[in-house]
Design a protein around this nucleic acid. Structure first.
Lengths: 230, 230
DNA sequence: CCAAAAGTGTTCGTGGTACACCCATGC
DNA sequence: GCATGGGTGTACCACGAACACTTTTGG
């Protein structure tokens, strides 16, 4: 078969972090290229012989120097032939979560700068990255209700109020504190620790942790995580 | 930027049909290439300047001559560098549903033969197409419970028993007939017609149809289609 | 009148929702 | 002692689950 194809393939990663009751995205300012100095998602071209996962992980390491907590393929963008002004590029987008309490981002080789931006207050993005980001936001919202991925945005030990705020913030919904706690605890996958978090005001709050092993075990037995609130 | 990339990009389509209480997949027997005479999914390389959607639709037309009822991107397969023995190929897989009561498949230009196979009785497939198919089956199972895509596998007018059998077959679950009917009808998106289907035995059954406009309207108002049964 | 599939209602239990007061700490 | 957030229990309602008999046709 004759095959003369010039389409290029890239990967991009939407990295979400949650800090101070705000959902943030990691963006990098490009050092080179036609879109120099524009903010864009972490990403780049796939190298010959590389798998898609290898490529994303390499870009995450090179451009941001981070290790993500959760990574899954999001969607492949290739319905706008001119999404990249240089030539036809198809981008396989990945969706990543980091527990980023004290994440140190080192703008590395390819990126001039790397920074967290609140998802609701973003600069203009390069390419069709705003579209990709919207898709990712929607995925996060959906997935949060039927998979325990919220824990991947929090530190290993967290306050119940933090978990609750995370859900309220991302789902853009008010949730009754008592019902939320009751439901989460009824699953038996979140456990109380002996430690307390240090808050400035009010009664000290216990730290909790997510028991992933137990979650996996229950899942095999047919348990379905689900925390939709009307 | 120097860019010397030799990875090729293809699209594949998993086309599901439902006939005689059986979930079927459309496969084609390849005319050319290293894998000549093996059964494979509909698919092929994306052409320069073509979007992904254009490419899938072209392949569907060229290889099977069908018009699908539902089409969505499934997943992009590129984590096995040798999934194609010829060279590195990344495949964007699409998920398609056809109402195939009397579908005429014409093996066209690129395919020697095209045929429906029951998903539970398949020949050995080329490439990693079995993996792709498994992913698609899972997606179908999940999506059936939270989106009204079952109707895209049935003729415009159908018997309640057909709808029920479709759900039972795909979900591999027994569902109580009375509860199923009650739940579907309570949504108000399936309407009775005046016509009757012709069955050989038993009491004649009314034909029903899915009111897509009403579904879209309700969805905008916050309605969520959901028919999970324990 | 028998076989085959269609059509229909009720009861019971679980789980979601709404809702308000006391508790422990720091200042 | 007051402000601040943490922690808990109950009553009601709605929906899902389980379940069996009657109806209409063809042979």
């Amino acid at each position: 078969m004759e095959l003369n194809q010039h389409i290029k393939i890239a990967v991009d990663a939407i990295v979400f972090g949650y800090q101070e009751n705000s959902l943030n995205v990691l963006l990098i300012k490009q050092k080179y290229g036609a879109l120099k100095n524009q903010w864009a998602l972490v990403g780049g071209f796939v190298k010959d012989g590389e798998t898609l996962h290898t490529a994303v992980n390499r870009e995450l390491a090179e451009e941001a120097g981070i290790k993500v907590n959760y990574l899954e393929q999001l969607y492949t963008f290739g319905d706008d032939v001119n999404r990249d002004p240089r030539f036809q590029v198809i981008s396989v987008a990945y969706f990543a979560l980091v527990n980023s309490t004290k994440l140190i981002i080192k703008a590395d080789t390819d990126a001039e700068d790397a920074q967290w931006f609140p998802v609701n207050d973003l600069p203009k993005l390069a390419f069709d990255h705003q579209l990709i980001l919207n898709t990712a936001k929607q995925r996060l919202k959906n997935k949060l209700t039927y998979q325990p991925i919220g824990f991947d945005l929090l530190p290993k030990e967290f306050l119940f109020s933090e978990l609750e705020n995370l859900y309220c913030t991302i789902l853009e919904k008010e949730i009754d504190r008592r019902n939320f706690r009751k439901k989460i605890l009824s699953f038996g996958i979140v456990e109380e620790t002996e430690k307390f978090g240090n808050k400035k005001n009010g009664r000290p709050a216990k730290l909790f942790k997510f028991n992933k092993l137990k979650y996996n075990k229950l899942t095999k037995e047919g348990f379905i995580f689900d925390i939709y609130f009307a």
